[in-house]
């Protein structure tokens, strides 16, 4: 009986963590965008700036994952992570913007490098 209570409490706690540290931090920014971006015109100069900032923040998220990687990616040395992304980008450019070619190339280099390192 107490096991069940403990389990339910654990689930309840985990759900609170999800809402407080996962759902709200993301949804707040989305709803702020909905609220404050209400009157922005589709062709306005403001949107050019907003899109540039969105792109640059996203670039920051990319750089963060590569610089301080989560989980198993941390077992891959830094130079190999950067080389894999660079190879993926090169393939993307050569194939005239094929995301598929870029992703496959980057991943193959990572797998080959990790296999070679043992």
């Amino acid at each position: 009986m107490s096991d069940l209570v403990g389990h339910l409490l654990g689930e309840w706690n985990a759900l609170m963590v999800l809402v407080i540290a996962g759902f709200l931090p993301n949804e707040v920014w989305r709803m702020l965008g909905l609220w404050l971006g209400g009157g922005v015109d589709e062709g306005s100069e403001l949107l050019v700036w907003v899109r540039a900032v969105a792109t640059a923040i996203l670039a920051g998220v990319i750089a963060q994952i590569l610089l301080s990687p989560p989980g198993a990616l941390a077992s891959v040395p830094g130079w190999l992570r950067y080389a894999a992304v660079a190879a993926g980008f090169a393939a993307f450019v050569i194939t005239r913007r094929s995301i598929f070619a870029g992703v496959v190339c980057g991943e193959l280099l990572l797998l080959a490098g990790k296999w070679w390192l043992g």
Binding site: A21, W29, G37, A54
Partner: peptide
């Protein structure tokens, strides 16, 4: 939970300009 919330909030900032640029 607080440390996690701060880390997630900062990474989620990108959603704000994305929403503002897509909704129009």
């Amino acid at each position: 939970v607080l440390q996690a919330a701060v880390a997630v909030t900062v990474s989620a900032i990108r959603l704000f300009p994305m929403v503002v640029s897509v909704l129009p």
